[in-house]
Design a protein around this nucleic acid. Structure first.
Length: 472
RNA sequence: GGACAGGUGGCCGAGCGGCUGAAGGCACCGGUUUGCUAAACCGGCGUACUGGUUAUACCGGUACCGCGGGUUCGAAUCCCGCCCUGUCCGCCA
C-alpha cells in the first residue's frame, strides 16, 4: 500500500507510476473521496467533542435527579421527570447529526479503502520504461565452461536435445495422465527418481540458503486468511489467481486461500507487530507447496512441467530497515545467492531487469532470472527446438509497500515507529527447475548426468539411466 | 463437534456504566546516591488520525481495552454476532 499522505501531496507521481506499469487506477476519484471523507471526519470529531463536553456537564446532574426520584413524593416526581427529560434532550440533535455523519463516512470508507489498495507502487527511477515483458533488459548471462548459449545445443554437445517432456516420459520421472485423472489439467505426479530429484533439488536449495547462508529455516501455513493475501499485496488485484476455500459457506468461520508462494506466510508472520530494531534484518527461508490457478493462461504452456497448479518452492525473504541503500544491498545479495546456486547446478542463466510494465503492482523493482531451456523455443527447419530462456526466479524489491499493508513496523533510534522494508526472491522452484536441469544435463544415450552438488541428496546416484525406467 | 473459562498498553495484571487512555508491577529511558556492579529513591514512558503552522518540537481534538454491531445523555464496563486462546470431553493423521 502506498502512503496516502504522499499521494495527496504529489498525485502526479502515482499517476505516472501507474501509467508506466500499464495499470489503470482512478487516482482523481480517490483524492475526491479522500477529501470528502476527511472533511466529514473533521465535522464528526467536532460534534463528538461537543457531545462529550455536554455529557460531562449534565451527567452528574442526571445522576443526582435520578437519585432524588427514588425517594420523591408524588408531586415532586412529576417536576423531577420534566427536568430530567429536558436535560436528556439537550444532546439529542447532536446525536442525530453524528449518526448521519457516521453513515456517510461508512459509505465512503469501503470505496476509499478499495481504491487505495489498488494504487500500485510507482517503479523506481532507474527501472527502464517499457510496454511489455519484451522490453525487459538483460543484465548479464552466465554459462558453465564449454557451453555457449548463442550456439545450438547440438553445436555445443554434438547431439540433438530432447525436450524435458520426452526425457521425463522416457525415464519415468513423472505421470501426467494420472495427475490429470485425479485433479484435472495442469496436474501431475512426480514418480520414482523424478520425485527423488525433485526432493534433492529442494533440499539442496534449502540447505544452501539456511546453512551456507544464514537464513532462518521456517515452515509456513499455505492455507491463509484473506488479510495475509491483501497484506502481502497479492489481493485484491490477483484474487482470481488464488484458490479460494469458502469455509464461510459452511455456516461459520472465515474463508481461506491457498498461497501461491511461501512469501505470504513468511511476511504475514509479523503482521501487526512492532519488531525490535536490533532483530533487523530478518532473513528467512521456507520450503512450501504453492498453488496457482493460472487463470487467463489457458492454452499457454499446457504440456510438461512448466506451468502447473501445484509445485514446491524454496523462498527467501528479507525484512530490513526502511533505508533505500539497505533494500538495494539485500536485493543484490539475494540475487547473488541464486547465481551461486545455479552455478553449482551448472545451469546457464541470465538476469533480466524487468521493465516498468512487467513489475506488477507491488514492486518498485524486480529482477527475473531465467534459465536456458534447450527444449523450448521455435522449431528450426530441421525440426529441432532453438532453445529459449524460461523464467525460474523472480527477485522483488518493495520498499515499505507490503509492510504498510501488513502494519509491520519497527522502532527507530528516535523511538518512532517506522514501516519496515521487505524483499523476496525465489531460491528454487521445482519441478519447473527440472526442465533446464534435465535438458542441460541430458547425454546422448538419453541418460541424465546429475550435477555433483546433488549427489549427496540422491543417495550417491550420479546418473539417471534410461533403463532405470520405472512403470507403476 | 460439545461444555466451560477467557481475550485490557512492549509484557504481566486491576478495573466491570460517568471521577479510566486506563491502578499496580516488570521491562525500557533520564536523574540522585554509589569505588565498580547491584540495590534503593525521584521523574518519564502507547498507537493512529486530525487541527493550531510549513516541520518527527509544543499545545488541542477524535478514535482505539480481540473484531463488528446495538442499548445509553454517556460503554473497557451492559446486550448480540463473529474471530481467537486455554481447559475438559468426543473424533482423529
Amino acid at each position: 500500500m502506498i502512503d496516502i499522505k504522499i499521494l495527496r501531496e504529489n498525485p502526479q507521481h502515482f499517476i505516472d507510476g501507474a501509467t508506466a506499469k500499464n495499470i489503470d487506477v482512478a487516482i482523481p476519484l480517490l483524492l475526491e473521496i479522500d477529501e470528502q471523507k476527511r472533511s466529514l471526519t473533521r465535522q464528526r470529531e467536532e460534534h463528538r467533542a461537543e457531545q462529550k463536553r455536554i455529557s460531562k456537564e449534565i451527567g452528574p446532574q442526571i445522576g443526582k435527579l435520578k437519585g432524588q426520584l427514588k425517594s420523591a413524593s408524588e408531586e415532586d416526581t412529576k417536576a423531577l421527570e420534566t427536568k430530567l427529560a429536558e436535560l436528556e434532550a439537550k444532546p439529542s440533535s447532536l446525536k442525530a447529526e453524528i449518526q448521519s455523519l457516521d453513515e456517510r463516512i461508512a459509505t465512503l470508507e469501503p470505496q476509499w479503502n478499495d481504491l487505495l489498495l489498488h494504487i500500485p507502487q510507482p517503479p523506481d527511477e532507474d527501472v527502464p520504461k517499457g510496454e511489455s515483458a519484451d522490453d525487459n533488459v538483460q543484465i548479464r548471462t552466465w554459462a558453465p565452461d564449454g557451453y555457449d548459449v548463442s550456439k545450438s545445443f547440438a553445436e555445443n554437445k554434438g547431439f540433438n536435445p530432447r525436450p524435458h517432456l520426452d526425457l521425463v516420459n522416457a525415464l519415468g520421472l513423472a505421470d501426467f495422465e494420472r495427475g490429470v485423472k485425479m485433479a484435472g489439467t495442469r496436474h501431475y505426479m512426480m514418480t520414482g527418481n523424478g520425485m527423488r530429484l525433485h526432493q534433492a533439488m529442494l533440499r539442496f536449495a534449502f540447505d544452501f540458503i539456511t546453512n551456507t547462508y544464514d537464513f532462518t529455516p521456517m515452515s509456513v501455513p499455505v492455507i491463509l486468511r484473506e488479510e495475509c493475501m491483501v497484506g502481502t499485496g497479492f489481493f485484491p488485484t490477483g484474487r482470481d489467481q488464488a484458490y479460494h476455500i469458502q469455509e464461510s459457506q459452511r455456516g461459520s468461520g472465515h474463508d481461506l486461500f491457498l498461497a501461491g508462494t511461501g512469501e505470504v506466510g513468511l511476511m504475514g508472520m509479523y503482521a501487526d507487530e512492532i519488531i525490535d530494531a536490533d532483530k533487523l534484518p530478518i532473513k528467512m527461508a521456507t520450503v512450501s507447496t504453492c498453488f496457482r490457478r493460472e487463470a487467463g493462461a489457458a492454452g499457454r504452456d499446457t504440456a510438461g512441467l512448466y506451468r502447473i497448479h501445484q509445485f514446491d518452492k524454496v523462498e527467501q525473504v528479507i525484512i530490513c530497515k526502511a533505508k533505500e541503500e539497505e533494500s538495494r544491498k539485500w536485493h543484490t545479495e539475494m540475487l547473488s545467492i541464486v547465481e551461486q546456486l545455479l552455478q553449482q547446478l551448472q545451469l546457464p542463466y541470465r538476469l533480466l531487469q524487468c521493465c516498468t510494465a512487467d513489475l506488477g503492482a507491488k514492486n518498485a523493482d524486480m529482477i527475473d532470472i531465467e534459465c536456458w531451456m534447450p527444449g523450448r523455443g521455435e522449431l528450426r527447419k530441421d525440426g529441432q527446438p532453438m532453445g529459449d530462456w524460461g523464467e525460474t526466479h523472480s527477485a522483488s524489491r518493495l520498499y515499505d509497500f507490503q509492510c504498510r499493508r501488513l502494519n509491520m513496523r519497527y522502532r527507530d533510534e528516535e523511538g518512532n515507529t517506522v514501516f519496515a522494508h521487505s524483499l523476496n526472491n525465489t531460491v528454487l522452484a521445482s519441478p519447473r527447475i527440472l526442465i533446464p536441469l534435465l535438458e542441460m544435463h541430458q547425454q546422448e544415450d538419453g541418460s541424465i548426468a546429475i550435477p555433483e552438488c546433488l549427489h549427496p541428496y540422491m543417495n550417491g546416484m550420479t546418473v539417471l539411466q534410461a533403463e532405470q525406467l520405472q512403470d507403476a
